[in-house]
Simulated assay, not measured.
Amino acid sequence: MLGVSRDGDVVVLELQREERRNALNLDLCRAIDEAARDAVGDGPANGGARAIVITGQGTAFCSGADLGGVYGDEFLEALYGMLHGLTRLPVPIVAAVNGPAIGAGTQLAIACDLRVADERAKFGVPTARNGMAVDAWTIRTLAALSGTGPARRMMLAGELIDRDEALGHGLVDKPGTLDDALAWAHEIATLAPLTLAYNKRVLNGLDDDATIEQGFRDVWASEDVREAATARTEKRTPVFRGR
């Protein structure tokens, strides 16, 4: 149902319900949430992953919520607990969108921090076509990433947008395959973990002003700041520890 592999500082989560085009059900939502939290562990300083890549098996990233599954509060809690949990993890998450990402598939993609998509990718949240609804976070995040025009077409007209349009509007960050997403994740994994965690929390609006200020000061007081200064003096690439 979910493949988990590690390559150095990068953990890859692969949705493996190819027969259902990787549609999300209760068990898969819970598996993604648990695997992502396990990948981070106690943080990069203690051996946790420094970046995560999420992709789908076969020709679809994720076709949405499994319409053959059981709906209700339990599923919704698992789905949104997983999605919002990804936004709170302290490491960058890259979605390798290897095909259609529809409904909950688009939600999963925008819960990640960055998106790399191949030419088969499509995005949309066609709740108006099935009488369902998504939470306000989904609609606002979609609008923030893609712009209000494309978001309105997706949410109010039930339209899908392809990879190139998504790339033009900023919903997709880079064109490419899983290999491209992995290469980018490995580059990101060499950056300063505390800075990345702080930047992500500010970008995602997770903290109040006092907590943001403390996080800012913690970064400046870190060993990694001193390591960067030493590396500049020694004319070498810094090795960040997340401390």
Rank of each mutant, 00 (worst) to 15 (best):
G105E: 08
L206S: 03
L2H: 00
R129T: 11
S63P: 02
L182I: 15
L167K: 05
V40G: 12
G64V: 13
R21P: 00
P193V: 04
E234K: 09
A121G: 00
V239K: 07
P175I: 00
L171R: 06
V116D: 06
G47T: 14
M82D: 06
A65Q: 08
P193G: 03
G124Y: 08
I161D: 11
P92M: 12
D209R: 14
A210Y: 14
L13Y: 14
G215C: 01
A197T: 09
K235V: 12
D118M: 02
A197Y: 07
A95P: 04
L83G: 00
Y71T: 10
A133L: 05
R30M: 13
P90I: 02
A65D: 14
A109G: 01
D38T: 12
D208N: 11
R21W: 13
E119Y: 05
L108C: 05
E234P: 04
A221T: 04
T230Q: 14
G3P: 04
R88Q: 15
L114G: 01
M155Q: 06
I212W: 05
I212M: 13
D135T: 15
I161V: 13
A121I: 03
G48D: 04
L108F: 01
L142C: 03
D218V: 04
L89I: 13
D224G: 06
L15N: 03
A128E: 00
I161N: 10
L26S: 15
G147T: 05
E165V: 12
V225W: 04
L76N: 12
G205P: 00
V11L: 09
D164I: 01
R6L: 04
L167S: 04
M132W: 08
D73R: 14
A49M: 03
L206V: 13
P92C: 05
D135E: 08
W137A: 13
R163Y: 00
V134D: 03
G242F: 09
I52E: 01
T237A: 01
D38H: 11
V239S: 05
R129E: 13
E187P: 11
N46Y: 15
G69D: 06
L194F: 05
L206M: 11
C62F: 09
H84C: 12
Y80Q: 06
T87K: 15
E227R: 12
T87I: 14
V91L: 01
G242K: 06
G147H: 07
D180I: 11
V91M: 01
L114E: 07
R30F: 06
A101V: 08
T233K: 11
A151P: 06
M155A: 08
L194R: 14
K235C: 12
W220K: 11
A181S: 10
L67T: 15
A51L: 07
R153T: 15
L15G: 04
A60D: 11
F61Q: 10
R152G: 15
P100H: 12
A166V: 02
A96S: 13
L171C: 02
I188T: 14
L86C: 11
M1K: 07
